[in-house]
């Protein structure tokens, strides 16, 4: 009797904890150093959802460019590269999603200053459920990746 009581208590406890939690962690955030002529660059990162509810990245803001857009690079079977805008990126619970070269990335359009390797920029990453995460991204040159 006592044993089953405990089981119920534990089950209730667990179910409360497992209900609707999105725990987002962002790491390895970096920005590509671009030649001086460029007014666009890309941001890459690893986003991990340690909670047990799916979440999605829905908006990015930064001071260094006029616009920050979630993009995906696609190379079709004819070898044609296309960029498409994504409204969001799904971050499933318990999964890690990598934004990387030739895949999904945050494109910064209309840079208002040139970014040099070693510089750091601030980004606000907005997740649908978890809210806003302030991330700091390091600018990396060609040598460092």
């Amino acid at each position: 009797m006592k044993k089953s009581m405990w089981t119920i208590v534990i089950l209730i406890f667990l179910s409360i904890h497992s209900f609707g939690v999105s725990r987002i962690e962002v790491k390895d955030v970096w920005v590509r150093e671009v030649p001086p002529a460029s007014s666009v660059t890309a941001v890459y990162m690893v986003i991990e959802n340690k909670g047990n509810e799916d979440d999605r990245l829905i908006e990015v803001k930064t001071d260094v460019s006029n616009n920050a857009v979630i993009h995906n690079t696609l190379v079709d079977e004819k070898g044609i590269a296309k960029m498409e805008k994504f409204e969001y990126i799904n971050i499933p619970s318990g999964k890690s999603v990598e934004l990387k070269p030739s895949g999904s990335h945050i494109m910064l359009i209309g840079l208002n200053k040139s970014l040099k390797a070693g510089d750091k920029i601030e980004l606000d990453l907005k997740f649908e459920k978890f809210g806003i995460i302030k991330a700091r991204a390091q600018v990396k040159g060609m040598q460092s990746h």
Binding site: R32, V34, P35, A37, S38, S39, V40, T41, A42, H71, T73, V75, A81, M83, P101, S102, H105, M107, M142
Partner: peptide, 16 residues
């Protein structure tokens, strides 16, 4: 084209 930060940049880095 020069305003292409992902694919073109990667290609030119590989060629480098």
């Amino acid at each position: 084209y020069t305003r292409c930060p992902d694919i073109c940049f990667t290609t030119l880095s590989v060629l480098r």
